[in-house]
Simulated assay, not measured.
Amino acid sequence: MTAPLRLTDRKRQAIVAAAITEFRANGFEVTSMDKIAATAGVSKRTVYNHFPSKEELFAEILHQLWASTVAQLDVGYTRERPLREQLRELLEAKMKMMSDANFLDLARVAIAATIHSPERAQDMVNRLSQREEGFTLWVRAAQEDGRLRGSDPAFAAHQIQSLLKAFAFWPQITLGQPPLDATSQANVIESAIDLFLAGYEIPLSPQP
């Protein structure tokens, strides 16, 4: 049985939730710690006890965004399994993450807050790249095993993941479109796999 959260932990969660709400509504630059405290229903002193600055509060939101991606792309390359089957598992994991309402909320906040700060934007890009390294490792292993063409696994991994983001991430983030339904998700995944394998797969030699 999960132990109930301590009061201080509940307050911290309320502050982060309030910050996400305010950052989404008003942007990072305009949002004040006073407004976050009021929305969270706590004192400004309590906010500063948990987060000494608005930058550190934003960093916590980014941390939650990265933490929500930990379970994605946790599929290691297996020689004995068909490439399509392995790719489908990888892309289904990524699609599940991008369809999560909490992930999309956090991503909107992060992207909006980076518009006026090149430093924050670069940090976000670097962190996202690190989180997507699992896909790159899979592509590299398949290339080294002679199953995929190419010499730049990061480029190939970025290509196939971008095919998903074009339908299941950027329209939701920038245009407010709803997440794709299950049928559309499956269609996007299968189409991305078709395009990827058409460009990279090395056909297996027929057995004598």
Rank of each mutant, 00 (worst) to 15 (best):
G150H: 09
A157I: 09
H158E: 11
L163S: 08
D145T: 02
Q143D: 06
Q143K: 07
L164H: 08
R149M: 09
A141Y: 09
E144W: 01
A141T: 03
A156R: 14
R131G: 09
D152Y: 09
T136P: 04
S129M: 14
A154R: 15
S129D: 15
A156E: 15
S129T: 15
A141V: 04
A154T: 11
A141C: 07
G146P: 03
E133R: 14
E133P: 04
L137H: 07
E132L: 14
R149W: 09
G150S: 06
Q130H: 14
L148S: 08
D145R: 07
Q159K: 08
S151D: 15
D145F: 04
S162N: 11
D152Q: 13
F135E: 03
P153S: 12
L128E: 12
F135R: 02
V139E: 01
R147V: 00
H158W: 10
S162Q: 12
Q159D: 07
P153V: 08
P153C: 04
R147K: 10
D152T: 05
Q130D: 14
Q161C: 07
L148W: 08
Q130N: 13
A142C: 04
W138Q: 00
Q130S: 12
G146L: 05
S151N: 14
W138T: 01
P153G: 06
R147L: 04
W138C: 01
E132S: 11
L148K: 08
S129E: 15
A141F: 08
F155A: 14
D152G: 02
T136K: 09
A156S: 15
W138M: 01
E144A: 10
F135G: 05
L163K: 01
L148V: 03
L137F: 00
G150T: 01
D152R: 13
Q143W: 06
F135I: 02
L163M: 13
E132V: 03
I160M: 04
E133T: 13
Q159W: 07
A142D: 02
R147P: 01
